[in-house]
């Protein structure tokens, strides 16, 4: 469990953070979201002591972070940066196992662990373990960066704008991968992003920050339904409702999955779907190479549930 207690951060006359109180539960995928300069990255960096708060204390497993041995603390945390930040001079295996190497784990064990992790992201260890980062595609690099954070089986993984530099397709894939791995390993993940779509997609709970202050903490649903401040409402652009997003629809349980078939009509966005469903009561379609079925009744139910926003 992570607890931020009365955290303040000042650089000279500038206040970066003001009286932040926050609890993050074990096993949670927690998102810190806010525009640039809101202090979200500063909050994250307090967890691995890259930044030390000027006021208040951060607790990790009921101990003040500042009381931890910094190296030990960091070795037990995964970290994924904005670009993959793979060490260009080390091969994939050595990159993945770098923290284990520092911990003094034997070479054979490191090799085994790297192979395990590579398999978990569908990269053949025989093929990829000895490759250099430059020989990988951007997506593969990002996958390696993610599993590198898992190498020591850490209890906490920090992700700092990890997917911001990726193109939309890769970003979605990476998000899916993290969601999948999170389900699998139940590791606590603190995820920083400035992208509200990403925040809604990833976060079990979300903390919205602006100008060094927490605006709201809650589930995506809470935030969408009951934005606590005008800032939150504006930031999440609630005029275009979140349920307008096809991905959100797919993630909800409103759609019935059916077998994929090339013949199915292709639907790209929510508007098309609505239009077609005004003409027929039931529609089978494909979206991003998957088959779905939807009835107008289900659509209405979905809208009544999600659309209750003022």
């Amino acid at each position: 469990m992570i607890t931020y207690k009365n955290i303040g951060m000042k650089y000279g006359p500038n206040t970066i953070l003001h009286d932040v109180n926050l609890k993050i539960d074990d096993g949670e995928l927690f998102v810190l979201v806010g525009p640039s300069g809101s202090g979200k990255t500063t909050l994250l960096r307090m967890l691995n002591k890259l930044t030390v708060p000027t006021d208040g204390d951060v607790y990790f497993e009921d101990r003040k972070i500042k009381e931890y041995d910094v190296q030990k603390l960091r070795l037990d945390m995964g970290y994924v940066l904005q670009d993959s930040s793979l060490f260009p001079n080390l091969n994939v295996e050595d990159n993945i196992a770098i923290q284990l190497e520092q911990k003094g784990v034997s070479k054979a064990k490191r090799h085994k662990r790297a192979a395990e992790l590579l398999e978990s992201v569908e990269l053949d260890p025989k093929k990829y373990a000895k490759r250099m980062p430059a020989e990988l595609s951007g997506g593969q690099q990002q996958r390696i960066a993610i599993i590198r954070a898992l190498a020591t089986e850490p209890s906490l993984i920090l992700m700092d704008e990890s997917f911001s530099a990726l193109d939309p397709v890769l970003r979605k894939k990476s998000q899916d991968l993290v969601l999948k791995l999170h389900k699998q390993y139940k590791t606590t993940i603190v995820f920083v992003t400035h992208d509200m779509q990403e925040a809604l997609r990833m976060g079990q709970r979300i903390a919205v920050l602006n100008k060094g202050e927490i605006q709201q903490v809650g589930t995506p649903h809470d935030i969408m339904q009951h934005p606590a401040t005008d800032f939150v409402r504006q930031f999440f652009d609630i005029k275009t409702p979140h349920w307008w997003d096809m991905d959100f629809l797919v993630a909800s349980n409103a759609l019935k999955k059916i077998d994929f078939n090339e013949q199915l009509p292709v639907i790209d966005n929510f508007k098309e779907l609505m239009k077609l469903l005004t003409q027929q009561t039931q529609l089978d379609f494909q979206y991003q190479k998957a088959g779905y079925s939807m009835t107008s009744q289900k659509l209405l139910a979905y809208l009544s549930e999600e659309g209750g926003v003022h």
């Binding site: 890259l50 190296q71 030990k72 960091r74 060490f87 923290q99």
Partner: peptide, 8 residues
């Protein structure tokens, strides 16, 4: 930064 944050 990555290397520092990894605790190397």
């Amino acid at each position: 930064e990555a290397a520092v944050a990894f605790g190397l």
